Amino acid sequence: MNGITLTLRALHHGERQLAKDLVVVAERHSTEHEVHHVAKDLVTWSNVACVRLAEAADHYGLALDGPAHTSTSGFAPTLREKTAGSLGHRPEPGLLLLMDLRDIHLAAAGNSLYWEMLAQAGQAAKDERLLDLATACHPQTLRQMRWANTMIKNLSPQVLTSL
């Protein structure tokens, strides 16, 4: 296994985990409509990245799965939504939301670094496949990170001063 395959594997794992985390955030904070709907939309970007990474990995002899199973139906999501609904007006859910957004931001930042590493490796190796992949997917990861950062900036004053 070489550095490119290690990076592909790490990035694939990171995008799958980010998709799972975004689904949990969307379900856990279903009473925060903007968070709920945008987080669900952002899952798609990580899932597309996973598919594209798996396709690219085949060229390097690496077998990667497709996107993570990110179903929003079933017992656990329903329980999280009910809990979110009953806790929706207490300050503690606000702190939980800030922590969740922080985790999303950090996960996206980690993925962004891997995308940058992959792009640099593609440039050094003159590998158009890697450059095209990073060029197509990295901007969505940056948008995921900026969204989480913006939400933290918008929510922090109210949440942190209401405790």
Rank of each mutant, 00 (worst) to 15 (best):
A49Q: 04
H69W: 04
Q144I: 11
R52H: 06
T70F: 08
G122F: 14
V38R: 04
D132N: 11
A57T: 15
T78R: 03
S162Y: 00
A84L: 01
T141S: 11
K126I: 11
A108Y: 00
A109E: 04
N47K: 08
G66Q: 14
L155I: 08
E34P: 02
Q144C: 11
L79T: 05
A124H: 13
T78H: 10
P67R: 03
P139L: 05
A63M: 12
S73G: 09
G88L: 01
L95D: 03
A124Q: 09
R90M: 08
I4A: 09
K153E: 06
R143F: 07
E128M: 13
A136K: 08
D103P: 00
D21P: 01
R129C: 07
T5C: 08
C137Y: 02
E128D: 15
M151P: 02
S112T: 03
V24S: 12
T83C: 05
E116D: 11
T72V: 13
L106Y: 00
P93K: 02
H69G: 03
E34L: 09
T31N: 13
E27T: 15
K20P: 10
T135K: 15
F75A: 10
L130Q: 14
E128C: 08
A39S: 14
I4N: 05
L8Y: 05
E128V: 14
F75G: 04
I4V: 15
H69L: 13
L18R: 02
A49L: 02
N47F: 02
H29F: 15
A108N: 00
G88I: 04
A119G: 10
A107I: 00
T161F: 01
L155M: 03
L118F: 04
E81M: 07
A108L: 01
V23A: 15
S156Q: 06
A63W: 12
L62S: 12
L98F: 10
L96E: 05
V24T: 14
H89Y: 09
A124F: 03
L163N: 02
N111A: 12
L101W: 00
Q123I: 06
N47V: 03
E92W: 14
L96D: 11
V48E: 08
A26T: 05
N47R: 07
D58S: 13
D100S: 10
N47T: 06
K40A: 09
A136D: 11
H33R: 11
P93T: 08
V23Q: 14
V48A: 06
G3W: 09
K153D: 10
Y114C: 05
M1A: 15
T7D: 15
I152V: 10
V24K: 15
T83F: 07
K126V: 11
T78N: 06
L160Q: 01
H33D: 13
L64I: 10
V48R: 10
R143G: 01
A63I: 12
I104V: 12
D41M: 07
H33K: 09
T150D: 06
D58W: 05
A56V: 08
P77L: 00
L42F: 11
I4H: 00
Y60H: 08
A10T: 13
T78Q: 09
